[in-house]
Design a protein around this nucleic acid. Sequence first.
DNA 1: ACGATTTGACCCGA
DNA 2: TCGGGTCAAATCGT
Length: 226
Amino acid sequence: MDNKKNASRCTNHFECDHRMAIEGIKRGQELTNQLEDALGFAVSSEPVSKLFHGIHTSLNNALSGLEHASNASSSKSQESKKNTLEEDNLGINLKRRNIVASIVTPTPHYDGHQWRKYGEKLINNFKHERCYYRCTYSKELKCPATKTVQQEDGTTDPPMYSVIYYNHHICNHGSSEGSPFVIDSTNFSTNETLISTASQETASFDAYAPSSMELHMLEEFGMKTD
DNA sequence: ACGATTTGACCCGA
DNA sequence: TCGGGTCAAATCGT
């Protein structure tokens, strides 16, 4: 991909990741179209066309969510304060974490990175426990990235999870060829494993494939630009 | 044996 | 003081 061109114009890590995500989704749309062409008449069968419709809808939703977040962040980035997030010391001081993004997804484990669970806790006013993950490379590469996964109350079919990402990965910076490859071992079906291992290049997009996926970039503050 | 997960205890910011 | 986040020993799985 030529994300590097765009990435080089970014002013901060979040912007870079954000642009890469947008480029990635666009690329996903492109590849989906190509796949439709390649399948030819087979696409006209109802289950297949429904699947493609779902994929297109999901990608469009994800894209518009990201683009909306992008606009919001650029307009408020000026005054987006102090936020009490002085130095995050590469995430060592994890009580003061930068929220990088948050999404609501039925597949919280597919985000293109490897995570290790380090805690789980029942939170007030939530029926389900919140799980705490950190990057598998948090020790060896001092990667500060962490995330929390909270199953949303009330939604059961499929269960939706609110995933909040803190701090950016530094474990794969500068090596975009180290394509994202999910090996989260906590709990996912054989089917999902197949999806993530079937195609490394598109593994990160598969994360966004489920038709019910909703993507919200709810928060993007905390990027210290200077 | 080693790495990942679980879970109770502890830390610390609000 | 409370509650969310992290630590670390015990346990589990491969």
